[in-house]
C-alpha cells in the first residue's frame, strides 16, 4: 500500500506539473485578454510534433529548445493576425475563432504528419530507471519532466514578481485600460504574453510527447482539462493554476490507484442493493470509473458557487 501511495503521489505530481505548464500560459492569456483560448492545447500538440521532426534530424535536445520557440512565434503570429483581427467582431467571435483554430490545427497536423502515433522517444541517456523502490522502477525521464516543470514554475514566478516586464504584465492583468493609459504598449504585451504562453504549452508538448504519445488527438485529450484548471484556480492567479494543476494531477492518478466503489462505502453501513436494478451502475461505481467526471463536476460547481475560482479575485 505504501508503495502504491508513494508512486501515485510521484506520478500525480509529474502529471500535475505538466498540466501547470499548459495552464500557466492559458491563465495569463485569459486574464489579460479575456479570451479563453481553445487552441491552447493545440500549441501543446504542435510542440510535440515540431520536436519530433527536429529530433529526427538534430536530436532531442535541439528540439527541446527550438520547438517551443517556433511554437511561441507561431502563437504570436496567430495573436497578431488572427485574434486581433477577429476582436472587432466581439468576444463570442474570438472564442469561436480559437475553437475553429483548434479544429484546423488538428487537421493540419494530420495532413502534415499523418494520423498515426509518431515514434517520438525520450533520449537514450534518460532511458534508465532512476531508482527502484519496493522493486518498482521510477524512470529517469519522469524525473527530468519534474525538474523542467519546477524550473519553469520558478522562472515564471521570478519574471512576474521581480522584473519590469513582469510588473507591466501584472498591471495589464488587473487594469488593462489603466496600463495602456500609462503609456505602455498593451497590444505588444498581449502579443508577447500570447506568444510566451504558447511557447510554454509547446515546451509541455516537447517533454510530454515521448511519455504520453505524439498523436493527432493529444490536444483534444488535454484541452478541456486545462480549462478546468484555469477556471478552478481562478482568473489571473498563477498560484491558483498551480494548486489546481496539482489537484487534478493527483486526482487522476489516485482515482486509478484506489479501487473503492459506492458499494464498498454502503457495505460499511451494512446496506446492500439489488444487483439487477436499472440503477445498478450507481451502486457499483468505483473510484477509477468516476475519475474522469470529477474535474468537470468541480468546474460546474465552481462556476455556479464561486465564479472567481479558488484563488482569483475577479469573475470570469
Amino acid at each position: 500500500m505504501l508503495e502504491l501511495i508513494f508512486f501515485s503521489l510521484l506520478n500525480g505530481v509529474v502529471t500535475g506539473l505538466l498540466l501547470f505548464m499548459l495552464a500557466s500560459g492559458l491563465t495569463l492569456i485569459f486574464s489579460m485578454m479575456g479570451v479563453l483560448n481553445f487552441a491552447h492545447a493545440s500549441f501543446y500538440m504542435l510542440g510535440a510534433y515540431f520536436a519530433y521532426t527536429i529530433s529526427i534530424y538534430l536530436g532531442f535536445w535541439v528540439g527541446l529548445i527550438v520547438a517551443p520557440i517556433l511554437v511561441g512565434l507561431l502563437g504570436a503570429v496567430v495573436e497578431r493576425y488572427g485574434l486581433r483581427y477577429v476582436h472587432r467582431w466581439g468576444h463570442v467571435a474570438e472564442l469561436i475563432f480559437t475553437f475553429g483554430l483548434a479544429f484546423l490545427i488538428e487537421e493540419v497536423v494530420q495532413f502534415i504528419w499523418g494520423k498515426d502515433t509518431k515514434a517520438y522517444h525520450e533520449p537514450e541517456i534518460l532511458q534508465f530507471p532512476l531508482f527502484t523502490f519496493f522493486g518498482q522502477n521510477f524512470p529517469a525521464y519522469k524525473a527530468f519532466m519534474l525538474v523542467i516543470s519546477i524550473g519553469i514554475f520558478i522562472l515564471l514566478l521570478l519574471i512576474l514578481t521581480r522584473s519590469r516586464v513582469g510588473l507591466i504584465i501584472q498591471a495589464a492583468i488587473h487594469k488593462p485600460n489603466m496600463t495602456a493609459m500609462l503609456g505602455h504598449n498593451v497590444p505588444l504585451v498581449f502579443m508577447g504574453v500570447f506568444g510566451v504562453g504558447c511557447a510554454l504549452a509547446g515546451l509541455a508538448g516537447v517533454i510530454a510527447g515521448p511519455a504520453l504519445g505524439t498523436f493527432p488527438g493529444m490536444a483534444f485529450v488535454l484541452g478541456s482539462i486545462v480549462f478546468v484548471i484555469v477556471v478552478v484556480g481562478g482568473l489571473g492567479s498563477l498560484t491558483g493554476a498551480f494548486v489546481a494543476s496539482l489537484l487534478i494531477g493527483l486526482l487522476q492518478t489516485f482515482a486509478i490507484a484506489l479501487d473503492y466503489s459506492v458499494n464498498d462505502l454502503l457495505q460499511l453501513f451494512n446496506i446492500s442493493f439489488d444487483a439487477d436494478s436499472a440503477l445498478r451502475d450507481l451502486w457499483t461505481l468505483s473510484l477509477p470509473q468516476i475519475a474522469p467526471i470529477l474535474p468537470y463536476l468541480l468546474l460546474i460547481l465552481i462556476l455556479i458557487f464561486r465564479p472567481t475560482g479558488l484563488f482569483g479575485n475577479r469573475e470570469t
Partner: peptide, 13 residues
C-alpha cells in the same frame, strides 16, 4: 488512456 503508469503501479503493488 494515454499513460498506463498508474495501472502498472497497481499491477506491481
Amino acid at each position: 488512456v494515454k499513460d498506463f503508469t498508474p495501472y502498472a503501479t497497481k499491477i506491481r503493488a
